[in-house]
């Protein structure tokens, strides 16, 4: 009895300690984004929204934020469409070397982003394509396509096949089956793939860093902010990004998982 109570105490202490470890940097980040002073470290001098004001007045940061959103949404749309079509083709038809095809589509998942970025950089340099947000977007599709394909492919079950066959028997053309029957049935996993891609692209640094030149995405702009050392403004933009990701997560939870859970 005593030992069970003892282990209970240990468990809760461990739980609290690890949650403390996990949350420490986030709490420090958010708390000192309100710091009334030049350094985001203790002692806490009092709350101000000054740094948030500076963030939203910073044209470069705001431009980078816009770029990030554009690249994230654009590249995720492309990755989702390509991934969905490929999943449809491979799950619904018998194709030669389908294992090899799946292997090729999944392959980028197993390679470090740094290596993907370097490969693309070498190739763009070689062909003479100049770097821009477009090249960043291409890179982000490369890393998100395997993810979209895998998620959507995994959710294509046999029971949907019968419904598709019924639609075909009733005279639907292939693209009608795909867009009006298959896509709506798989919407939860398509949305999950899309939102995951958006968060990955939104947060990605090394590809965006190596493949962009004048217009940059938010993580790259934050990176250049870091050169000024500890600065409450960096805390503020970091907190904004965190809030944005959490909001996205909430949308995903409410829109997608809630609905699947009901089913």
């Amino acid at each position: 009895m005593i030992s069970s109570r003892f282990s209970k105490v240990i468990s809760w202490a461990y739980l609290i300690a690890l949650y403390g470890f996990i949350f420490l940097p986030v709490i420090v980040l958010v708390l000192f984004s309100f710091q009334d002073g030049r350094l985001p470290v203790p002692p806490f001098n009092g709350a101000t929204l000054k740094w948030y004001g500076e963030v939203f007045a910073d044209n470069r940061l705001m431009a980078a934020l816009g770029n990030s959103l554009m690249v994230a949404i654009g590249s995720s749309l492309v990755a989702c469409v390509l991934g969905f079509c490929a999943a449809y083709g491979l799950a619904r038809f018998v194709l030669p070397a389908s294992r090899l095809q799946r292997g090729i589509l999944i392959a980028p998942m197993t390679v470090s982003y740094l290596i993907i970025a370097l490969g693309l950089l070498s190739t763009f340099n070689w062909i003479g394509i100049s770097l821009s947000l477009w090249t960043v977007g291409i890179g982000h599709v490369v890393i998100n396509l395997p993810l979209c394909f895998a998620i959507i492919y995994a959710s294509m079950g046999d029971h949907q096949k019968n419904i598709e066959r019924a639609a075909r028997d009733l005279g639907a053309k292939e693209w009608q089956v795909m867009t009006q029957v298959t896509a709506p049935m798989l919407m939860p996993s398509i949305l999950a793939a899309f939102f995951l891609s958006v968060t990955f692209s939104w947060d990605e640094f090394i590809i965006a860093f190596l493949l962009s030149r004048f217009d940059v995405t938010l993580p790259v702009e934050i990176w250049s902010l870091l050169r000024s050392g500890l600065n409450p403004k960096t805390n503020a933009i970091g907190s904004v990004v965190f809030l944005f990701s959490i909001a996205l997560l909430l949308v995903l939870e409410l829109l997608v998982f809630r609905r699947t859970a009901k089913k």
């Binding site: 083709g89 392959a107 390679v111 290596i115 490969g119 070498s122 490369v142």
Partner: peptide, 30 residues
Amino acid sequence: ENRKAWGFVTPALLWTICFFVIPFIVMTAI
């Protein structure tokens, strides 16, 4: 049927080959 299936898979395959497989070969060459 087969032609249709290839139509679905080819864009994704091409993308991965153009922007992942070939760059990797280029990098190895470099």
